[in-house]
Deep mutational scan, measured.
Amino acid sequence: SDEEKKVRDQAKRLGVNTEQLLKWARRQGDEDLVRIVERLLRS
């Protein structure tokens, strides 16, 4: 999905993997991002 591509691009920009991005999203309190990243991790 578009959202998932955006998440992957953001992880690349930050230089982190998906698990690290999830931690980062939780720290930001970004519920939408957390949900998308969790979906990516499960897929």
Rank of each mutant, 00 (worst) to 15 (best):
S1I: 09
S1K: 10
S1A: 08
S1M: 09
S1D: 11
S1H: 09
S1G: 07
S1P: 09
D2H: 11
D2L: 11
D2P: 11
D2C: 15
D2I: 09
D2Y: 11
D2G: 08
D2V: 10
D2W: 12
D2T: 09
D2S: 09
E3D: 12
E3H: 11
E3N: 12
E3T: 10
E3P: 11
E3Q: 09
E3C: 15
E3A: 13
E3G: 09
E3L: 14
E4N: 08
E4F: 13
E4M: 12
E4A: 09
E4S: 08
E4V: 09
E4D: 06
E4Q: 08
E4C: 15
E4G: 07
K5F: 07
K5D: 06
K5A: 08
K5E: 07
K5I: 06
K5R: 08
K5P: 04
K5Q: 08
K5S: 07
K5Y: 06
K6S: 07
K6R: 11
K6H: 07
K6M: 12
K6L: 12
K6E: 05
K6T: 06
K6C: 15
K6F: 12
K6W: 14
K6G: 04
K6D: 07
V7G: 06
V7A: 06
V7Q: 04
V7K: 06
V7T: 04
V7Y: 05
V7N: 04
R8I: 11
R8V: 08
R8D: 04
R8W: 13
R8K: 05
R8F: 12
R8N: 05
R8Y: 13
R8G: 06
R8T: 05
R8P: 05
D9H: 07
D9R: 07
D9Y: 09
D9N: 09
D9W: 10
D9P: 06
D9V: 08
D9Q: 09
D9E: 11
D9I: 10
D9T: 08
Q10L: 15
Q10H: 09
Q10D: 03
Q10Y: 14
Q10M: 15
Q10V: 14
Q10G: 05
Q10R: 10
Q10P: 04
Q10C: 15
Q10E: 09
A11I: 13
A11V: 10
A11M: 14
A11F: 11
A11N: 04
A11W: 14
A11S: 04
A11Y: 09
A11D: 03
A11G: 04
K12G: 03
K12F: 08
K12Y: 07
K12S: 06
K12N: 06
K12V: 06
K12L: 10
K12A: 07
K12H: 06
K12T: 06
K12Q: 06
K12E: 09
R13M: 07
R13W: 10
R13E: 03
R13Q: 04
R13C: 15
R13Y: 06
R13N: 03
R13L: 10
L14G: 02
L14M: 07
L14Q: 03
L14A: 04
L14S: 03
L14E: 02
G15F: 13
G15H: 08
G15S: 08
G15M: 06
G15L: 09
G15I: 07
G15P: 03
G15A: 05
G15Q: 07
G15D: 03
G15Y: 10
G15V: 08
V16A: 04
V16D: 02
V16N: 06
V16Q: 03
V16R: 06
V16G: 07
V16P: 03
V16S: 04
V16L: 15
N17R: 07
N17T: 14
N17G: 05
N17Y: 13
N17A: 09
N17L: 14
N17E: 03
T18I: 15
T18K: 10
T18N: 05
T18G: 07
T18H: 12
T18R: 11
T18Y: 15
T18E: 07
T18W: 15
T18L: 15
T18D: 04
T18P: 12
E19Q: 10
E19N: 08
E19F: 12
E19L: 13
E19C: 15
E19T: 09
E19R: 12
E19V: 11
E19P: 03
E19Y: 14
E19G: 06
Q20V: 07
Q20M: 08
Q20C: 14
Q20Y: 09
Q20A: 12
Q20R: 07
L21A: 00
L21W: 05
L21H: 00
L21Y: 01
L21P: 00
L21G: 00
L21T: 00
L22A: 01
L22N: 00
L22M: 03
L22Q: 01
L22H: 01
L22D: 01
L22C: 13
L22W: 05
L22F: 02
L22I: 03
K23E: 15
K23P: 01
K23T: 05
K23H: 11
K23D: 15
K23G: 03
K23V: 11
K23N: 12
K23F: 11
K23Y: 13
K23W: 14
W24C: 14
W24G: 01
W24A: 01
W24F: 02
W24I: 04
W24M: 03
W24D: 01
W24N: 01
A25F: 13
A25H: 01
A25M: 09
A25V: 07
A25S: 01
A25R: 01
A25E: 00
A25Q: 02
A25Y: 06
A25P: 01
A25C: 14
R26W: 06
R26Y: 09
R26F: 07
R26P: 01
R26Q: 10
R26K: 11
R26M: 09
R27P: 01
R27L: 14
R27H: 10
R27N: 14
R27Y: 08
R27F: 11
R27V: 11
R27E: 15
R27D: 15
R27I: 13
Q28Y: 14
Q28E: 05
Q28L: 11
Q28R: 07
Q28N: 08
Q28V: 10
Q28I: 14
Q28D: 02
G29Q: 06
G29D: 02
G29L: 14
G29H: 05
G29P: 02
G29R: 06
G29W: 13
G29K: 07
G29A: 06
G29I: 14
G29E: 02
G29F: 14
D30T: 08
D30A: 14
D30W: 15
D30M: 14
D30P: 08
D30S: 07
D30I: 15
D30H: 12
D30K: 09
D30F: 15
E31T: 10
E31R: 09
E31W: 15
E31M: 13
E31C: 15
E31D: 10
E31L: 13
E31I: 12
E31S: 11
E31Y: 13
E31G: 05
E31F: 12
D32G: 06
D32E: 11
D32S: 09
D32T: 11
D32Q: 10
D32K: 11
D32R: 14
D32Y: 13
D32W: 14
D32H: 11
L33K: 00
L33R: 00
L33E: 00
L33V: 02
L33G: 00
L33M: 03
L33D: 00
L33A: 01
L33H: 00
V34L: 07
V34D: 01
V34A: 05
V34H: 01
V34S: 02
R35G: 03
R35T: 03
R35W: 09
R35F: 05
R35Y: 05
R35H: 02
R35P: 00
I36S: 02
I36R: 05
I36F: 11
I36T: 03
I36E: 02
I36Y: 08
I36G: 01
I36D: 01
V37Y: 02
V37S: 00
V37T: 01
V37N: 00
V37L: 15
V37M: 05
V37H: 00
V37F: 06
E38G: 02
E38P: 00
E38T: 08
E38S: 04
E38M: 11
E38R: 04
E38H: 03
E38I: 13
R39M: 08
R39G: 03
R39I: 06
R39E: 03
R39P: 00
R39N: 03
R39Q: 10
R39A: 10
R39Y: 10
L40K: 01
L40M: 10
L40H: 02
L40S: 01
L40T: 01
L40C: 11
L40Y: 12
L41A: 02
L41I: 08
L41R: 02
L41T: 01
L41M: 05
L41W: 02
L41N: 01
L41Y: 02
L41E: 00
R42K: 11
R42G: 05
R42Q: 08
R42V: 05
R42E: 04
R42I: 04
R42Y: 11
R42S: 08
R42H: 04
R42T: 03
S43Y: 14
S43P: 07
S43D: 07
S43Q: 12
S43K: 12
S43V: 12
S43G: 08
S43R: 13
